[in-house]
Design a protein around this nucleic acid. Sequence first.
DNA 1: CCCGTGCCCTGGCGGC
DNA 2: TGCCGCCAGGGCACGG
Length: 270
Amino acid sequence: MPELPEVETIRRVLQKKVSNLTIKDVVLNLPKTIDGDSKQFIHNVKNKTIMQMNRVGKWLIFELNEGIILSHLRMEGRYYFKPTTDPTEKHEHVIFYFENDMSLRYHDTRQFGKMKYFDNLEECLNYLKPKVGPEPFNATIDDLIKLNKKSIAIKTSLLDQTIISGIGNIYADEILFRSKINPMRPANKLTKRDKQNIINNSIEVLNKSIDLGGTTIHSYESEKGITGLFQQELLVHTKKDLPCPNCGTTIIKTKVNGRGTYYCPNCQKK
DNA sequence: CCCGTGCCCTGGCGGC
DNA sequence: TGCCGCCAGGGCACGG
Protein backbone atom coordinates (compact mmCIF):
# COMPACT_ATOMS: atom_id res chain seq x y z
CA MET A 1 0.00 0.00 0.00
CA PRO A 2 2.25 2.72 -1.22
CA GLU A 3 1.97 6.01 0.59
CA LEU A 4 4.18 9.05 0.04
CA PRO A 5 7.43 7.51 1.37
CA GLU A 6 6.99 4.36 -0.72
CA VAL A 7 6.24 6.34 -3.87
CA GLU A 8 9.23 8.59 -3.18
CA THR A 9 11.43 5.51 -2.74
CA ILE A 10 10.20 4.11 -6.04
CA ARG A 11 10.77 7.49 -7.70
CA ARG A 12 14.39 7.55 -6.55
CA VAL A 13 15.03 4.00 -7.70
CA LEU A 14 13.40 4.54 -11.09
CA GLN A 15 15.14 7.87 -11.59
CA LYS A 16 18.46 6.01 -11.58
CA LYS A 17 17.26 3.11 -13.73
CA VAL A 18 15.13 4.60 -16.48
CA SER A 19 16.37 8.17 -16.97
CA ASN A 20 17.48 8.77 -20.57
CA LEU A 21 16.04 5.47 -21.78
CA THR A 22 13.84 5.49 -24.89
CA ILE A 23 10.63 3.47 -24.97
CA LYS A 24 10.83 1.30 -28.07
CA ASP A 25 7.64 -0.63 -27.48
CA VAL A 26 4.75 -0.89 -25.03
CA VAL A 27 2.71 -3.99 -24.33
CA LEU A 28 -0.64 -3.59 -22.59
CA ASN A 29 -1.70 -6.87 -21.04
CA LEU A 30 -4.53 -5.20 -19.13
CA PRO A 31 -5.78 -2.21 -21.13
CA LYS A 32 -8.03 -0.95 -18.35
CA THR A 33 -4.90 0.04 -16.44
CA ILE A 34 -4.83 3.00 -18.79
CA ASP A 35 -7.14 5.86 -17.95
CA GLY A 36 -8.27 7.02 -21.39
CA ASP A 37 -7.76 5.51 -24.85
CA SER A 38 -5.28 2.67 -24.46
CA LYS A 39 -4.34 2.50 -28.16
CA GLN A 40 -3.67 6.21 -28.13
CA PHE A 41 -1.55 5.74 -24.98
CA ILE A 42 0.75 3.32 -26.78
CA HIS A 43 1.05 5.68 -29.72
CA ASN A 44 1.76 8.61 -27.40
CA VAL A 45 4.59 7.06 -25.41
CA LYS A 46 6.30 5.02 -28.13
CA ASN A 47 9.72 6.37 -29.11
CA LYS A 48 9.67 8.88 -26.25
CA THR A 49 12.58 9.22 -23.86
CA ILE A 50 12.15 9.30 -20.09
CA MET A 51 13.91 12.43 -18.90
CA GLN A 52 13.23 12.29 -15.17
CA MET A 53 10.93 10.98 -12.46
CA ASN A 54 8.81 13.23 -10.30
CA ARG A 55 6.16 12.84 -7.63
CA VAL A 56 3.12 14.71 -6.32
CA GLY A 57 1.56 13.21 -3.20
CA LYS A 58 1.15 9.51 -3.97
CA TRP A 59 1.26 10.11 -7.73
CA LEU A 60 4.31 9.16 -9.74
CA ILE A 61 5.21 11.27 -12.77
CA PHE A 62 7.32 10.13 -15.72
CA GLU A 63 8.54 13.22 -17.53
CA LEU A 64 9.17 12.32 -21.16
CA ASN A 65 11.06 14.39 -23.70
CA GLU A 66 7.56 15.10 -24.98
CA GLY A 67 4.57 14.31 -22.78
CA ILE A 68 3.93 12.91 -19.33
CA ILE A 69 2.92 9.57 -17.90
CA LEU A 70 1.05 9.90 -14.61
CA SER A 71 0.89 6.73 -12.54
CA HIS A 72 -0.97 5.84 -9.36
CA LEU A 73 -0.10 2.54 -7.68
CA ARG A 74 -3.16 2.45 -5.45
CA MET A 75 -2.92 -0.62 -3.24
CA GLU A 76 -0.44 -3.00 -4.78
CA GLY A 77 1.11 -1.46 -7.86
CA ARG A 78 4.86 -1.98 -8.27
CA TYR A 79 7.50 -1.41 -10.90
CA TYR A 80 10.10 -4.00 -11.82
CA PHE A 81 13.12 -3.30 -14.01
CA LYS A 82 14.11 -6.51 -15.81
CA PRO A 83 15.87 -7.78 -18.91
CA THR A 84 13.60 -7.81 -21.94
CA THR A 85 14.17 -11.53 -22.32
CA ASP A 86 12.66 -12.36 -18.91
CA PRO A 87 9.32 -14.08 -19.44
CA THR A 88 6.18 -12.08 -18.70
CA GLU A 89 4.88 -12.89 -15.26
CA LYS A 90 1.33 -12.90 -14.02
CA HIS A 91 -0.01 -9.43 -13.16
CA GLU A 92 2.49 -7.57 -15.35
CA HIS A 93 -0.13 -5.35 -16.92
CA VAL A 94 1.99 -2.74 -18.68
CA ILE A 95 5.49 -3.39 -20.03
CA PHE A 96 7.76 -0.70 -21.44
CA TYR A 97 10.58 -2.06 -23.57
CA PHE A 98 13.72 0.06 -23.88
CA GLU A 99 16.42 0.14 -26.51
CA ASN A 100 19.02 -1.34 -24.17
CA ASP A 101 17.37 -4.75 -23.79
CA MET A 102 15.84 -3.79 -20.47
CA SER A 103 12.16 -3.37 -19.64
CA LEU A 104 10.03 -1.66 -17.01
CA ARG A 105 7.07 -3.71 -15.86
CA TYR A 106 4.04 -2.42 -14.02
CA HIS A 107 2.80 -5.21 -11.77
CA ASP A 108 -0.50 -4.94 -9.90
CA THR A 109 -2.26 -7.98 -8.44
CA ARG A 110 -5.45 -6.23 -7.59
CA GLN A 111 -5.62 -4.14 -10.75
CA PHE A 112 -6.52 -0.95 -8.91
CA GLY A 113 -3.67 1.21 -10.21
CA LYS A 114 -3.99 3.57 -13.15
CA MET A 115 -1.78 5.27 -15.74
CA LYS A 116 -2.67 8.34 -17.76
CA TYR A 117 -0.95 10.27 -20.53
CA PHE A 118 -0.77 14.06 -20.75
CA ASP A 119 0.64 16.22 -23.51
CA ASN A 120 2.59 18.35 -21.04
CA LEU A 121 3.33 18.87 -17.36
CA GLU A 122 0.93 21.79 -17.01
CA GLU A 123 -2.04 19.67 -18.09
CA CYS A 124 -0.97 16.93 -15.73
CA LEU A 125 -0.67 19.30 -12.78
CA ASN A 126 -4.05 20.85 -13.59
CA TYR A 127 -5.53 17.37 -13.46
CA LEU A 128 -3.97 16.78 -10.04
CA LYS A 129 -4.73 20.18 -8.57
CA PRO A 130 -8.27 19.44 -7.32
CA LYS A 131 -7.24 15.98 -6.10
CA VAL A 132 -4.03 16.67 -4.21
CA GLY A 133 -3.58 19.17 -1.39
CA PRO A 134 -0.24 20.29 0.07
CA GLU A 135 2.16 17.67 1.35
CA PRO A 136 2.92 17.89 5.09
CA PHE A 137 6.35 19.35 4.28
CA ASN A 138 4.70 22.46 2.83
CA ALA A 139 1.56 22.51 4.95
CA THR A 140 0.72 25.17 7.50
CA ILE A 141 -1.92 25.41 10.20
CA ASP A 142 -4.00 27.42 7.73
CA ASP A 143 -4.16 24.42 5.42
CA LEU A 144 -5.89 22.52 8.21
CA ILE A 145 -8.55 25.19 8.64
CA LYS A 146 -10.88 23.01 6.52
CA LEU A 147 -10.96 20.62 9.47
CA ASN A 148 -12.94 23.17 11.48
CA LYS A 149 -16.02 22.37 9.41
CA LYS A 150 -15.59 18.60 9.47
CA SER A 151 -17.49 16.43 11.89
CA ILE A 152 -15.83 13.26 10.54
CA ALA A 153 -13.09 11.39 12.39
CA ILE A 154 -9.64 12.98 12.22
CA LYS A 155 -8.24 9.72 10.89
CA THR A 156 -10.63 9.88 7.94
CA SER A 157 -9.61 13.51 7.32
CA LEU A 158 -5.94 12.57 7.24
CA LEU A 159 -6.71 10.09 4.47
CA ASP A 160 -8.48 12.81 2.47
CA GLN A 161 -5.79 13.76 -0.07
CA THR A 162 -7.40 17.11 -0.84
CA ILE A 163 -6.63 18.42 2.66
CA ILE A 164 -3.11 17.06 3.16
CA SER A 165 -1.57 14.69 0.64
CA GLY A 166 0.66 11.66 0.93
CA ILE A 167 -0.68 10.07 4.12
CA GLY A 168 -2.32 6.64 3.91
CA ASN A 169 -3.65 4.16 6.41
CA ILE A 170 -0.36 3.14 7.99
CA TYR A 171 1.12 6.59 8.53
CA ALA A 172 -2.22 8.04 9.65
CA ASP A 173 -2.16 5.66 12.64
CA GLU A 174 1.48 6.42 13.38
CA ILE A 175 1.02 10.18 13.13
CA LEU A 176 -2.03 10.20 15.40
CA PHE A 177 -0.28 8.04 17.98
CA ARG A 178 2.73 10.34 18.04
CA SER A 179 0.37 13.32 18.29
CA LYS A 180 -1.60 11.66 21.14
CA ILE A 181 -4.89 12.12 19.30
CA ASN A 182 -7.69 9.56 19.25
CA PRO A 183 -8.34 8.53 15.62
CA MET A 184 -12.12 8.77 16.15
CA ARG A 185 -12.04 12.31 17.46
CA PRO A 186 -14.11 14.63 15.24
CA ALA A 187 -11.79 16.76 13.12
CA ASN A 188 -13.55 19.95 14.25
CA LYS A 189 -12.69 19.18 17.87
CA LEU A 190 -8.94 19.56 17.38
CA THR A 191 -7.05 22.38 19.04
CA LYS A 192 -4.53 24.52 17.23
CA ARG A 193 -1.82 22.66 19.09
CA ASP A 194 -3.23 19.31 17.89
CA LYS A 195 -3.05 20.53 14.30
CA GLN A 196 0.51 21.72 14.68
CA ASN A 197 1.43 18.38 16.24
CA ILE A 198 -0.12 16.57 13.30
CA ILE A 199 1.90 18.60 10.81
CA ASN A 200 5.14 18.22 12.78
CA ASN A 201 4.70 14.49 13.31
CA SER A 202 3.68 13.95 9.69
CA ILE A 203 6.89 15.57 8.50
CA GLU A 204 8.95 13.56 10.97
CA VAL A 205 7.31 10.22 10.19
CA LEU A 206 7.33 10.65 6.42
CA ASN A 207 10.93 11.89 6.33
CA LYS A 208 12.14 9.09 8.53
CA SER A 209 10.32 6.54 6.42
CA ILE A 210 11.79 7.98 3.21
CA ASP A 211 15.24 7.68 4.78
CA LEU A 212 14.53 4.03 5.54
CA GLY A 213 13.09 3.22 2.13
CA GLY A 214 9.46 3.05 3.17
CA THR A 215 7.47 0.43 5.03
CA THR A 216 6.80 -3.13 4.01
CA ILE A 217 3.48 -4.62 4.91
CA HIS A 218 2.06 -7.67 3.18
CA SER A 219 2.87 -7.01 -0.43
CA TYR A 220 4.92 -3.88 -0.76
CA GLU A 221 8.41 -4.00 -2.21
CA SER A 222 10.28 -0.89 -3.32
CA GLU A 223 12.21 -3.07 -5.69
CA LYS A 224 12.53 -6.81 -5.94
CA GLY A 225 14.66 -8.05 -3.07
CA ILE A 226 14.70 -4.78 -1.19
CA THR A 227 12.22 -4.09 1.55
CA GLY A 228 11.47 -0.90 3.43
CA LEU A 229 12.89 -0.62 6.91
CA PHE A 230 10.30 1.72 8.38
CA GLN A 231 8.38 -1.42 9.27
CA GLN A 232 10.64 -1.63 12.32
CA GLU A 233 9.70 1.90 13.36
CA LEU A 234 5.96 1.29 13.53
CA LEU A 235 4.70 2.04 17.04
CA VAL A 236 1.02 1.11 16.78
CA HIS A 237 0.06 0.00 13.27
CA THR A 238 -0.16 -3.83 13.16
CA LYS A 239 0.52 -3.92 16.93
CA LYS A 240 -2.87 -5.27 18.07
CA ASP A 241 -2.76 -6.81 21.58
CA LEU A 242 0.84 -5.68 22.08
CA PRO A 243 1.82 -3.19 24.79
CA CYS A 244 1.95 0.48 23.89
CA PRO A 245 5.64 1.46 23.64
CA ASN A 246 4.80 4.59 25.62
CA CYS A 247 2.65 3.39 28.53
CA GLY A 248 2.26 -0.39 28.22
CA THR A 249 -1.50 -0.33 27.69
CA THR A 250 -2.74 -2.93 25.20
CA ILE A 251 -3.04 -1.56 21.66
CA ILE A 252 -6.54 -1.77 20.24
CA LYS A 253 -7.53 -2.54 16.69
CA THR A 254 -10.79 -1.11 15.43
CA LYS A 255 -12.32 0.24 12.24
CA VAL A 256 -12.66 3.87 11.34
CA ASN A 257 -14.70 4.47 8.21
CA GLY A 258 -14.01 0.91 7.13
CA ARG A 259 -10.23 1.17 7.56
CA GLY A 260 -8.29 -0.96 10.02
CA THR A 261 -7.11 1.39 12.78
CA TYR A 262 -4.67 0.81 15.63
CA TYR A 263 -4.31 3.06 18.66
CA CYS A 264 -3.49 3.20 22.35
CA PRO A 265 -6.67 3.85 24.36
CA ASN A 266 -4.63 5.43 27.16
CA CYS A 267 -2.28 7.71 25.23
CA GLN A 268 -4.95 8.63 22.68
CA LYS A 269 -7.96 9.38 24.87
CA LYS A 270 -11.15 10.69 23.31
C1' DC B 1 -21.83 20.77 0.34
C1' DC B 2 -21.18 16.97 3.62
C1' DC B 3 -20.83 12.42 4.79
C1' DG B 4 -21.29 7.29 4.61
C1' DT B 5 -21.30 3.22 1.78
C1' DG B 6 -19.98 0.25 -1.77
C1' DC B 7 -17.16 -0.92 -5.57
C1' DC B 8 -13.09 -2.16 -8.07
C1' DC B 9 -9.96 -6.86 -7.64
C1' DT B 10 -6.84 -10.89 -6.11
C1' DG B 11 -4.67 -13.63 -2.82
C1' DG B 12 -3.71 -14.93 1.92
C1' DC B 13 -5.48 -16.70 5.96
C1' DG B 14 -8.50 -18.66 9.67
C1' DG B 15 -12.15 -21.75 10.68
C1' DC B 16 -14.29 -25.99 10.07
C1' DT C 1 -6.78 -31.32 2.37
C1' DG C 2 -10.29 -28.23 0.53
C1' DC C 3 -13.67 -24.86 0.59
C1' DC C 4 -15.79 -20.68 2.18
C1' DG C 5 -15.93 -16.15 3.78
C1' DC C 6 -13.44 -12.40 5.41
C1' DC C 7 -9.90 -9.01 5.05
C1' DA C 8 -6.44 -5.85 2.95
C1' DG C 9 -7.66 -0.24 1.65
C1' DG C 10 -6.79 4.25 -2.33
C1' DG C 11 -9.73 6.79 -4.70
C1' DC C 12 -13.97 7.58 -6.68
C1' DA C 13 -19.10 7.22 -7.81
C1' DC C 14 -23.34 7.62 -5.87
C1' DG C 15 -27.19 8.52 -2.82
C1' DG C 16 -29.34 10.52 1.24
